[in-house]
């Protein structure tokens, strides 16, 4: 464990908690893409299948459990408890356009052609693009609540910090996982546009609006 990865995990945890609290306390999921949340729940499900078979550390197991519980809780709140506030008219990104190509790629490009490894690879590729429905929804509505932009900033920062972690581990342990690195770079690049808007607008106290 290194500081970059720890900060990345905490940033990821912060993002997940921010979103869950936003929905729970405002009792509304306006402006949040339910499809992205479903994809994230799928990412954690396919990545943490070894939760009970491959114990790494208390921290690792605890975080995996928290991610799984929070992501499913968020999906539950959005599609059941606060369903009336779910903005399905703007959350129209076709998930199958992401899941099918990612599923195919996971079969073709992986480290080891075993079910667990292919599912892990699928989760890495899927996580890279899982935010697209959310970014698409914001581009359609043309704006995002400030709390949602904080959520996105924390979520985008997590994988950017992981990239620093991978560089650090390469120089200190000679370790690198090309699949995770390439997917992590794609994932972070998708946030660049948003990072620019966040830093130039939200940090100046303005509302996050996309140029229509």
């Amino acid at each position: 464990m290194n500081i970059f990865r720890l900060l990345g995990d905490l940033s990821h945890l912060l993002a997940i908690i921010i979103l869950l609290l936003k929905i729970w306390r405002t009792r509304s999921c306006a402006g949040v893409s339910g499809k992205s949340q479903i994809l994230f729940a799928l990412v954690f499900t396919t990545r943490y299948l070894d939760l009970f078979t491959n114990f790494i550390s208390m921290y690792n197991s605890a975080m995996k459990l928290i991610y799984l519980v929070c992501s499913y809780a968020t999906v539950f709140l959005m599609y059941f408890k606060f369903k009336a506030t779910y903005d399905s008219n703007h959350d129209t990104f076709r998930m199958e356009f992401l899941v099918v190509p990612v599923g195919g790629l996971a079969f073709l490009v992986n480290h080891d052609f075993t079910p667990l490894e292919i599912l892990w690879t699928f989760s890495i590729y899927l996580e890279a693009v899982a935010i697209l429905p959310q970014l698409f929804m914001i581009s359609k509505t043309g704006e995002a609540e400030t709390i949602t932009s904080h959520y996105l900033f924390a979520l985008g920062s997590y994988r950017a910090l992981y990239i620093v972690n991978w560089v650090f581990r390469f120089y200190t342990e000679g370790f690198f996982d090309l699949i995770a690195i390439v997917a992590g770079c794609v994932q972070t690049i998708l946030y660049c546009d948003f990072f620019y808007l966040y830093i130039t607008k939200v940090l100046k106290g303005k509302q996050l609006t996309l140029p229509a």
């Binding site: 990821h12 790494i56 892990w120 992981y162 972690n165 000679g174 370790f175 996982d177 090309l178």
Partner: peptide, 10 residues
């Protein structure tokens, strides 16, 4: 040297 991706990351 590419080691198998360690799954110690979240």
């Amino acid at each position: 040297n590419e080691k198998l991706p360690s799954k110690d990351e979240l």
